[in-house]
């Protein structure tokens, strides 16, 4: 399973390195979203720095849609999905590989967006350990839930419109937990941020487990 995950994840990342869609299209889109949030709040610095964690994770959420759609668009052309199905790779390995590739792209986007909120919204970081751990758990949760639903919608004619409807409500707990943990990590609230990390880790564990268990059914039917 792990070897297959490395094969699939490596394949997706190599395709991404050649096409550079994440760096040339998704990352600029992420910065654009931050700029638009700034316009929407009329460049009110106090509101923007207070809302920075929520806006950051909202931007990550929107970018994760693009990353997941891109991940499964790779398999749509030239019967690549049939090739994947007939390759004999362990479906759980395919899930883990694709989720890991999406997660790595999200990490790059989070670094870009982190720099973006520091520069554009004047955010300062207080608790790096909580910040990094909650971001890691949230990223795993987003990538695994996104990959699971990406496979559910793969091959459907309406996948572009259906995917956000399926994913966004499901990952709402990640938005909530990550925003609250980051608010604590940025010193914007006195609430205990570590409690929210528990929610994020639980969410990630549930979706990774469910993805590993159910991906064989979805790969078979995609």
């Amino acid at each position: 399973m792990w070897r297959d995950a490395v094969v699939v994840g490596g394949k997706d990342l190599r395709v991404e390195m050649h096409s550079r869609v994440t760096t040339t299209q998704v990352a600029p889109y992420a910065i654009l979203v931050l700029l638009l949030f700034g316009f929407a709040f009329d460049q009110n610095h106090a509101i923007l720095s207070q809302a920075a964690p929520g806006l950051f994770w909202m931007a990550v959420l929107l970018c994760s849609m693009l990353a997941v759609q891109r991940s499964f668009a790779l398999e749509a052309a030239d019967g690549a999905r049939d090739g994947l199905r007939l390759s004999g790779l362990d479906p759980a390995g395919i899930f883990l590989g694709k989720a890991a590739a999406v997660a790595l792209q999200l990490v790059i986007l989070e670094v870009v967006l982190g720099l973006g909120i520091a520069v554009l919204f004047g955010t300062t970081f207080h608790n790096p350990a909580l910040l990094v751990l909650s971001a890691a758990a949230a990223t795993v949760g987003l990538a695994s839930a996104g990959t699971l639903y990406g496979m559910v919608a793969a091959g459907l004619r309406v996948r572009e419109t259906l995917l956000p409807l399926l994913i966004l409500p499901v990952v709402a707990p990640v938005l909530l937990g990550a925003t609250q943990a980051w608010m604590a990590a940025l010193g914007l609230t006195t609430a205990d941020g570590w409690r929210w990390l528990t929610l994020l880790v639980s969410f990630a564990a549930i979706y990774v487990t469910f993805g590993v268990l159910s991906f064989s059914v979805l790969v078979e039917e995609a």
Binding site: L148, Y149, V152, L166, V170, F210, S214, V217, L218, E220, E221
Partner: peptide
């Protein structure tokens, strides 16, 4: 049948 399997996975989640 394909639709039923996809939907069943989503329903459980």
């Amino acid at each position: 049948d394909s639709r039923a399997k996809r939907c069943a996975v989503v329903a459980v989640v």
